[in-house]
Nucleic acid binder design. Sequence first.
RNA 1: GUGAGUGUAGCUCAGUCAGGUUAGAGCACCAGGUUGUGGCCCUGGUGGUCGGGGGUUCAAGUCCCCUCACUCACCCCA
Length: 424
Amino acid sequence: MLKYKALRGTQDILPEEMPLRRQLEETVGRKMKFYNYLEIATPTFEHTGLFVHSTGADTEIVEKQMYTFLDKGGRSLTLRPEGTPPVVRTYIEHSLGMKKPLQKLFYSGAMYRQENPQAGRLRQFHQFGAEAIGSIAPALDAEVIALFLDICEDLGLKELSLQLGSIGCPGCRPPYREKLLGFFADKYDLLCANCRERHQRNPLRILDCKNPSCRRMTEDAPSMLDYLCDDCARHFQELKAHLNTLDIEYRINRRLVRGLDYYTKTVFEVVSPQLGAQDALGGGGRYDGLIEELGAKPTPAVGFAAGIERILLAMEKEDCPSPELCHPKVYVASMEEEAKRLAVRLLQKLRTKMISADTDYLDRSLKSQMRAANNLKVVYTVIIGQEELNKGKALVRNMESSQQEEVEIENLCDYLVQVLNQNQ
RNA sequence: GUGAGUGUAGCUCAGUCAGGUUAGAGCACCAGGUUGUGGCCCUGGUGGUCGGGGGUUCAAGUCCCCUCACUCACCCCA
């Protein structure tokens, strides 16, 4: 029995799974470039207070999901549970707003939340995300949404649903909240246990309950969308207009609620019907109050975060094309000491000429070496033994055609470079 | 944190209901069939404290308890 296993909710990524991840990473980087978002990276741990004051002290994430610890100086630190607060902290700390009025940034990395793991939900998981800080333009909300959908489509995902909503601003949300409380006043006893708790703390969340009876009850509950202030309503209208011009389909979700405190106005979620319970591939929205909340001058912003493992799951379910592991081009099979020394020299030369190559380090029979070459799917196998050494030549076998010919040992490398280039 | 289901070879799984020789198959891996040539085929081999611990029994992969992990769902969210 293995003494130490990967911790609950963490995952080893094996060689076969890497190509697909790399592809995703490459797609993200490429698309971000086209939309002019620049990459940044922030530390994996921060002062605990950063998340308490941005994500929100009352949120599930901060209340019970953070990996928080004291360092030797007695400071409370936390492994980042999400990417937005660190990015905003960086934006403020390095006065990025002074360098450019609008900063468009993206990141990709591991996040940590101590939840109960299930399909599409890990304790260490990976997110990429974009944050556009400095503009209130609804067109920017649309760009951020378009960017995320563009990435998903480039990866081959087809069955996606964009859920759109608005949760207002500090101006219009409190009055709406009162309205909602009024609506539930005579229904309190009919709510499920969870919702009764929500009633005290965050009544908006009742709208998000999946309990069928709560659902039915909230059907004709007032929606935030009907109580938006003029500013928020106009913003929402303009965003929808922009999405229409971009031919982006969306579904208005009158009860879309986010679990993070900093959202204002626009909220959205991209959902895959392939996925089951954890079906949100990504989500985001506007957070016009966060920068000020963290001590800088008021600055509007909008962004999204996406779950890499969830996207990977969805790609698998939709049979998206996945890149193959790459194979070396040449295998050098050799017998006897002298030939093996020659093989090592040849390998070195090939590699400096940018040709991937490998050989046998297990002192196996020629037959085994040929099998190894076959499993590696190489294009050519070079065979060097005593006979060849005597002649000063080596055999070069084309693995597909099974044709092989003798080549002067001195010319081996140049010969292989030449034939491999012809093939391409 | 709660509920249900599942843990047998590197992988996919038989065997568990009705306890009883030395725990099996396919794939993968290794070797041989050709004393120097891959794929297909044939033969053989390596590999398991049956998730872990405890209990019942003459006897436990099989029954009971605990524990850990995974899966699904609640919850939450990416």
